[in-house]
Amino acid sequence: MTKRVLGVVRWCSLVCSFGLSGAVFAETATIAVASNFAVPARAIADAVEANSGHRFHIVVGSTGKLYAQIVNGARFDVFLAADVERPQALFDRGFSASGPPRIFARGRLAVWIPGAQHPDEETVTTFKPEHVAIANPALAPYGRAAMSALNALGLDQRWRERLVKAESVGGAFTLVASGSADLGFVALSSLLAYGADPAEFWRVPDHAYTAIEQAAIVLLPGAENPAVHAFMRAFEGDVYSQLMEQWGFAPVTP
């Protein structure tokens, strides 16, 4: 069993301790999820399904693309974004079924250099890559965070022509994993879920990039859906905060 699968099993067993009550009538909900939160979202959904009988369809994409789909009529019940701006915009435009957005996670950025041995800031700033993978800053909050980190490290001009922009931070991860990029600014959560060798990545200090606050919003189609309410209840309590740390996110305090 891979480290990634073991992590999901551990997550599910802990989420089940929330004590979700069984549903009298099982329902189905569609959850739109930013790519960096795909594995935790699926694990939470699996745990809620096991305890309630509800079923969840997880749709993964960049925050910008999912936002555009919602505005253009896609029938999602919940939106778990990688920023606050897009859920807030949906709230302002009347798409919310339950009030303003709620922050559910704070993302962390890491630099992944396959084959490296315990890279640090000096390793990164002296590295001479041919291709550097980042998420597209116009679509993905992790892309904007990557650009601010490049600026803080003094690499924004030096590496400008070497940047390869993926649609999402998950896409940036794939570029590095496939060997299409020598180095990538990726989500720490993706590295931990994948089981990447800790000796091959450097966690970028929080002060070096713009905060990646991730917000959730219940959309109008999910207003009266019991499956939605069961899913959202799983984002509460000390166990959830502990899981966020394990999966590479900063704790979220009420």
Rank of each mutant, 00 (worst) to 15 (best):
L109A: 04
L80H: 06
R158T: 14
A110G: 11
G248E: 03
E245H: 09
A227N: 12
R162T: 11
Q69D: 15
D46M: 12
S35I: 11
L14V: 06
A105L: 07
H118P: 01
G170A: 05
V111A: 13
Y240E: 03
G94H: 08
G53D: 06
A47F: 02
R55A: 07
A193H: 12
R55W: 00
Q117W: 06
V252K: 07
Y142E: 14
P254H: 14
F249Q: 02
A32E: 02
I70R: 01
V59C: 01
N151G: 12
G73Q: 06
I134N: 07
S21L: 12
D92T: 08
L219M: 03
A38P: 03
A196K: 07
A227Q: 10
A166I: 03
P221K: 08
L150T: 05
P137I: 05
R86V: 04
E213M: 05
S13R: 13
N72K: 13
I217T: 05
A250G: 00
F56V: 04
L175P: 08
S35F: 05
Y142P: 00
S13C: 15
L90T: 02
G154N: 09
K128M: 09
V84L: 10
F56P: 08
R42V: 10
G19T: 09
L220C: 02
A110C: 05
S13F: 10
A216L: 14
L90I: 02
A23F: 01
A47Y: 05
G61L: 01
G154S: 06
V252N: 09
G99W: 06
F127W: 12
P251E: 10
L163N: 03
S52V: 02
S190P: 00
S148F: 09
A223M: 14
M244C: 14
A45G: 09
A181V: 05
G195S: 04
A199I: 00
F25G: 00
L155R: 10
N36D: 15
Y67H: 12
F173M: 12
A172G: 07
E122D: 12
S62Y: 03
V218K: 14
S98Q: 13
P226A: 13
I134F: 07
E121P: 00
P129H: 08
P129Q: 06
N225G: 11
S96E: 05
G19M: 13
R158M: 15
N72S: 15
M147G: 01
P221H: 06
S21D: 12
R108Y: 00
V48E: 06
V176S: 03
V239L: 14
Y194I: 00
I31G: 07
G170M: 02
A68H: 13
R93M: 10
G99I: 08
V228A: 09
C16M: 15
A43N: 02
V252S: 04
